[in-house]
Design a protein around this nucleic acid. Structure first.
Length: 505
RNA sequence: GCGGGCGUAGCUCAGUGGUAGAGCGUCACGUUGCCAACGUGAAUGUCGUGAGUUCGAAUCUCAUCGCCCGCUCCA
């Protein structure tokens, strides 16, 4: 089966069985937005709760044998817009871009240089070049030339002079040439990756605010509040789960890249000397987490960012990548663990004038903590679980079943009377009322037993408890196992304990 | 944003200018004895949306929205 087919079937199943619907569907949809159905939100909440549990409620044991300290937070989506100037998002998320009208290539305007070669003040040739800095532009331009043009320039020897301008610096009305095909480029155009809105009744530029493109900044804004009110000491972490918004150029691949998504981020504040140790610590912790909630080790990899891939403030960054069907045999990002140095606290201290320094009493010193940031996509994690669970099986009626780890399954168990008579529905209802006290369970009385098993397979319910004729005689029920189709009998009054052990054990 | 493909019932799809269809699913009633059983019946469609051509458009044209693939983007 092709991977495109797999995704199509998964998207279809998600719609059909109430995991994920296209947003605003009755109005024709809206690109890059998705709604989570009854089962989707259950699954997403399970991932979120597992993360919160692993971070805030029961954080890991640190290298010193003691549990590390992490507290929770839920900051506002809209903050003072100066937040995003300080963080660099107003600059960084607003890159002017140019497109080639001929070959349709797109470039960042500040990375395309026009190199004009002059001899005695006369222009000989102008060439476009892609470059990170003006210093390398001439070399880039030269190497992009064909041998004929290169000889034409080289014969001028020392008389040859070059002038470099990025296309941003060109006079108004003048456009550059494409570094690839020499075609005409468009004027630089802005691509705003941050959504903006207006706060308050007066709609002028002063009232402009932004929907957060990441949850992390809300943590930095509250770093001092937490420090002052929560009896925490460096090293410690602040964790947050919430929506973030990016006006992606091309939303793609189901819920993988959407314009509204959900993040689970933790900022770990520590002293500079210990940063490499904590970086390695969190790297391993985070990988263990994804395995623990049901992703196969083979489908997960670490990928270190190259130097030129790192953000300007970042000293190191590693992604945990998952082998999604649409990236296979390659991998796509699931979580990034970034070493952010003290960039963010420094920025906010500078822009806000608020003191962000930490006073280390035992050592009698003040410093700005450095930060390790494990930042994962909750919606991407949910997608990874959906992909991982999707298991075609021609041998069973549904042709496919969702093999969620029991602890992550949206529905933990279904209670099914074999037939709707002889008091079976009544016993089933009693069992259902008991089980729902602790777990997400369903009761389903209508239709044939096979049809009901098939439906539970498709939504990934790990256990079905069937009340049958024998139940009436000896108070036992059939347990039907999703993955193996095996059946066993257990006492009716042992069902709750059985389920507890399977879900939490 | 560019290029290509696509859009008909909840899902998968047939329907090339002349009555809106199939399978599956869903629901109801009957039946039921462990894997989408069976019988009977039912609901569900502005044929993505809007204009145009035509006596007549799901079908042809244009625009638009959305989805998929490839670029590009993803500080």
């Amino acid at each position: 089966m092709s991977d495109t087919t797999t995704m199509e079937q998964l998207v279809s199943l998600c719609k059909r069985r109430g995991f994920v619907y296209p947003a605003s569907e009755i109005y024709g949809g809206i690109n890059g937005f998705w709604d989570y159905g009854p089962l989707g939100i259950q699954l997403k909440n399970n991932v979120r709760d597992a993360w919160w549990r692993a971070m805030v409620e029961c954080p890991p044991i640190g290298p010193d044998g003691q549990p590390v300290q992490i507290v929770g937070l839920d900051s506002s989506i809209i903050q003072n817009p100066k937040t995003w100037e300080a963080s660099g998002h107003v600059g960084g998320f607003n890159d002017p871009m140019v497109d080639c009208k001929e070959c349709k290539s797109r470039f960042r305007a500040d990375q395309v240089a026009m190199v004009t070669f002059l001899v005695n003040g006369d222009e000989v040739m102008t060439v476009g070049a892609v470059c990170d800095s003006p210093e390398v532009a001439v070399d880039e331009a030269m190497s992009s030339l064909n041998s004929k043009n290169r000889r034409r320039l080289e014969k001028h020897g020392d008389k040859l002079v070059s002038v470099v301008k990025t296309v941003e610096q060109l006079p108004a009305g003048e456009t550059g040439n494409c570094p690839k095909c020499s075609g005409e480029l468009t004027e630089p155009r802005m691509f705003n990756l941050m959504f903006d809105t207006y706060t308050g009744a007066i709609r002028d530029e002063n009232a402009k605010t932004y929907l957060r493109p990441e949850t992390a900044q809300g943590i930095f804004l509250n770093y001092k509040n937490v420090l002052d009110t929560m009896r925490v000491k460096v090293p410690f972490g602040i964790a947050q789960v919430g929506k973030a918004f990016r006006n992606e150029v091309t939303p793609r691949n189901f819920i993988f890249r959407s314009r509204e998504f959900e993040q689970m981020e933790m900022e770990w504040f520590c002293c500079e000397e210990d940063v490499p140790m904590w970086y390695e610590f969190w790297k391993q912790q985070r990988m263990d987490f994804w395995c623990k909630i049901g992703l196969e080790g083979d489908n997960l990899i670490f990928r270190d960012h190259d130097g030129d891939e790192l953000a300007h403030y970042s000293k190191a960054c590693v992604d945990i990548e998952y082998r999604y069907p649409f990236t296979a045999p390659g991998f796509g990002e699931l979580e990034g663990i970034a070493h952010r140095g003290c960039f963010d606290l420094t920025q906010h201290q500078t822009h806000s004038k608020a003191k962000m320094e930490y006073f280390d009493q035992p050592n009698n010193r003040k410093f700005l903590p450095h930060v390790i940031e494990p930042a994962s996509g909750l919606t991407r994690g949910t997608l990874a679980l959906l992909c991982e669970a999707f298991t075609p099986d021609e041998g069973r009626a549904s042709k496919v079943f969702m093999k969620f780890k029991p602890s992550m399954a949206p529905v933990k168990a279904a209670v099914l009377p074999l037939v709707a008579k002889d008091g079976m529905p009544e016993i089933a209802t009693q069992l259902y009322m008991q089980l729902r006290e602790k777990h997400m369970v369903e009761i389903d009385i209508k239709q044939s037993i096979g049809k009901r098993y098939a439906r539970q397979d498709e939504i990934g319910t790990p256990y079905c408890f069937t009340i049958d004729g024998d139940t009436l005689d000896d108070n036992t029920v059939t347990v039907r196992h999703r993955d193996t189709l095996d059946q066993e009998r257990i006492p009716l009054d042992g069902v709750a304990k059985f389920l507890d052990e399977k879900i939490t054990g």
